[in-house]
Amino acid sequence: MKVAITSLESSLDSQIDATFGRCQYFIIIDTDSMEFEAIKNPSLSASQGVGIQSAQLIAGKNISALITGNCGPNAFNVLNQSGIEVITGASGKVSQVIEDFKNGNLKSSELPNVGGHFGAGQGGGRGGGRGRWRM
């Protein structure tokens, strides 16, 4: 099974990147063979629609699930409609999270867990404001 994991660096020893759209790396891994590729996020400096772009990028890798910290509504929408399971709230080391996933210890999210522009940091600009945490 192929899954995508957001990561701060390009190896399985790295820490999970808690943001989705503006994460540093996407690690695409086959959980059976443990073969993986690390993709440097090309959308880091884009001004808007980063979640959408990132979702489109990883959906194109034919993954079955995304494991990340936070996922906003637009990205969630793209992934959800593409039949990709979204798992939020993950943290720690990438390799450990994959183990947890394989052992069935991670639960998929029914809804985005943060509002729009959550991980945008400074310079996100006007707008957004669709609420913060949705529990």
């Binding site: 808007q48 629609g49 959408i52 772009q53 489109q56 959906a59 194109g60 034919n62 409609q81 593409s82």
Partner: peptide, 11 residues
Amino acid sequence: NAIAVTPKTVV
């Protein structure tokens, strides 16, 4: 980025 196209759908 108002249109996303994935192997399954267009959003």
